[in-house]
């Protein structure tokens, strides 16, 4: 199968700090990859390089669906194919829920207002928020806002969806509803790269788990391999620390 996302020898520094060192990763169509690791490991930076929210060293390359991710004319095309869900939702507070979702399909995909709104309502139905189309983001709970953000990303019909700790900013009682939506997506064949601290979710949903530490991919494998029989000492101590809290 062809890789939808192909990352080759990715390195990145912030000033003098080396944040990513020679990371390579292929993600195939329909695959769900969960990225775990301690805070500061470079997980966010890695997925933010995929749609060039962060620039990276010239030595590395990233391809999305065969298109190189670089500054220039094709960047908007790449970004249109890569959906992103942020830890802090980043919904547009001045637009209704429906218009949050309809905006990019209208502006980037060229849908008419009616088509875009119809798509928005279909997706709101899919994330269980059909009744909230005309509300503003500020009127929704955190869990509801994050579900809207997922619908907004889906509305572009991206080839791959990136999640950066989508449940970390939520009150505990709202984590479940968001994870449920994500499980549904994973089950329907959406390609997903998910940075998460929800080990139960990773174990249940991931095709592959990647453990990062110190800007490198330390270990990668199926959830069973990584969680039940980690080969690397660093993976083991991270998992132990999590289990003990």
């Amino acid at each position: 199968m062809a890789a939808i996302v192909s990352i080759r020898n990715l390195s990145k520094r912030f000033g003098s700090a080396q944040v990513l060192t020679g990371v390579s990763l292929d993600v195939e169509e329909g695959e769900v990859v969960c990225v775990i690791g301690p805070s500061g490991a470079g997980k966010s930076t890695l997925i933010r390089c995929i749609n060039l929210l962060e620039d990276f060293d010239k030595s590395g390359e990233i391809f999305v669906d065969g298109i190189e991710v670089r500054k220039g004319r094709q960047l908007a095309a790449v970004r249109a194919e890569v959906g992103m869900v942020f830890q802090s939702f980043n919904l547009f507070p001045h637009l209704t829920v429906q218009d949050n979702i309809a905006l990019a399909p209208e502006r980037v995909r060229g849908l008419s207002v009616e088509e875009a709104r119809a798509r928005a309502r279909r997706l709101l139905d899919r994330v269980g928020l059909a009744a909230h189309a005309d509300k503003y983001p500020g009127q929704l709970s955190g869990g509801q806002q994050q579900r809207v953000a997922i619908a907004r990303a889906l509305a572009m019909e991206p080839r791959v969806l990136l999640f950066d700790e989508p449940t970390s900013a939520l009150d505990p009682e709202m984590v479940g509803e968001v994870l449920e939506v994500m499980k549904g997506l994973a089950g329907s064949g959406v390609t997903m790269i998910v940075v998460t601290h929800e080990m139960g979710f990773a174990r249940q949903v991931a095709d592959r788990v990647i453990f990062m530490d110190g800007g490198q991919v330390v270990e990668t494998g199926t959830p069973q391999q990584v969680f039940d029989a980690p080969r690397e000492q660093r993976t083991r101590s991270f998992l132990n620390a999590i289990i003990r809290h």
Partner: peptide
Amino acid sequence: RGQFEASQALGLS
């Protein structure tokens, strides 16, 4: 910043 990032991530010009 998140407003800019969300816009860019959606592919808005």
